[in-house]
Design a protein around this nucleic acid. Sequence first.
DNA 1: CCGGATGTTCACCT
DNA 2: GAGGTGAACATCCG
Length: 260
Amino acid sequence: MPEMLEVESYRQIASRALGRRIEAVEVRDPWFVKGGIDPDAVVAALRRRRFVADRRIGKLLLLDTDDGSTLGVRFGMTGVLELDGVDGIDGLAYGSTRRDPAWERFIVHFDGGGSLRVRDARRLGGVELDPDESRLGPDATTVDRTTLSDALFGSAAPVKARLMDQSRIAGLGNLLTDDLLWRARIDPTRTAGSLDAGEVRRLHSAMRATLRVLGRRGGSHTGDLQDQRHRDGHCPRCGSLLQRQSVGGRTTYWCPAEQI
DNA sequence: CCGGATGTTCACCT
DNA sequence: GAGGTGAACATCCG
């Protein structure tokens, strides 16, 4: 479920835990600890520390401790962050809201009884100590037109694949990308490097608009295309039958009449 | 029952 | 080197 809009919501929830003393850390699922580090090392790094800053780069949530280390959290497709029993997705449009204690993979207990919990049914997410932030491009909310243009320049890959390449631009997932390409009226299969200046301009403003509008509406599941993401789905603007095809390894929907 | 689902990583091709 | 494909992870939903 989480793309950058959801993770941004998680960040805001996590910010309420800043300054609290960490009493204990529970690694319910050792497999959930990434980066080739012993789960005990993560526990030791966080014990008795406080989180002093909350950050987000794309879909990666970063919590800095007063000790100079950083806890990185990735949510995969089904990860949810919960603080003191409140889900970071409350208030967002979401699929299943089921809570199964078996899905709790990583728990930070604070002095005074509160807790920060990472729940992930499919285990596609994970936590990591001091993740390599340099592997991510700039967050999509900060990308200007020149940066976008540079990210596309000279690439033979489909423009959609390039937009979702987290090392170029961080944060855009499958749903947001389909929606912004629809808004920009650009065919997702177009070669990234083939877009002219006017198209890059359109793409950039569509990207900004999509993040702003969907952020306000309640997340990446509130896109204009969302209800039509199925076989026989139609373009919300012109009514054409949507094209459905795998692009950049992901199921992609677009309007063959308008997106050229 | 079957196919597909918001993500990332990796092995293996072309 | 660049890009594509499929697998893996585990579960839910239509």
